[in-house]
Simulated scan of single mutants.
Amino acid sequence: MATRILFLTFLAITSSLALASDPSPLQDFCVADPNNPLKVNGLVCKDPKLVEAKDFFWSGLNVAAAINNPVGSQVTPVNVAQIPGLNTLGISLARIDFAPWGINAPHTHPRASEILTVLEGTLLVGFVTSNTENRLITKTLNKGDVFVFPVGLIHFQQNIGYGPAVALAALSSQNPGVVTIANAVFGSKPDISTDILAKAFQTDPAIISNIQAKF
């Protein structure tokens, strides 16, 4: 009897866990239909009879992006917005180009973990653990090296070489999202109150106003 109760309890727990996870796709593919006005958690499927090879294709990841901006980097995303066939598949890519000493500023991906491969150059990368420790974990990467950034954690990359650098990132979402910390905090619309930010950063409101003006 005790064994039966234990088995039923285990079954109930595992069933609950299964219901809490994302469902597996129930068809071969669900090519996104961006013209459909219906809003769902993802994008509405295009009629499979109208699907073509171009729905699973995008070209241009070999092209270096312009990096003459204040941070010295540029991200070229390849997600469901570029390839409609990625809809429901839970994967995407991004190319990141760096000028010498350029940075991919501290940011998070709210819906994805990231695995980054250095194609050219030398990068200093890192992420910060959550508030229980706020521990910085960093590593210097060279060509061919790979590093993982866990979902939701603040992370960054910096080109520490004297020439351009290139990295390729794979992400565990068709639409991983990105929250660049400085842009979100100092460039929100409307502005977060200077009083709130001054207290949060333990500084003067005038300094906050000066930073906000840059964003």
Rank of each mutant, 00 (worst) to 15 (best):
M1C: 00
F10Y: 04
L11S: 13
S16V: 09
A20H: 05
S24H: 12
P25I: 07
L26F: 08
L26V: 13
C30Y: 03
V31W: 05
L38V: 13
G42Q: 09
V44N: 06
P48M: 04
K49E: 14
V51P: 03
F57Q: 13
W58F: 12
A65C: 05
A65W: 08
A65G: 12
G72F: 11
I83F: 11
I83H: 09
N87I: 02
D97L: 02
F98R: 00
P100E: 07
I103L: 11
N104S: 14
N104D: 15
S113C: 07
E114V: 10
I115M: 12
L124F: 12
F127W: 04
F127S: 02
N134A: 09
L136R: 04
I137F: 13
I137S: 06
T140R: 09
V146G: 01
F147D: 07
F149N: 05
V151N: 14
G152D: 09
L153A: 08
H155A: 09
Q157K: 02
G161V: 01
A169S: 15
A169W: 09
S172N: 07
N175S: 13
I181E: 11
I181S: 15
F186T: 07
T194M: 01
T194V: 13
K199V: 04
Q212V: 07
A213T: 09
K214D: 09
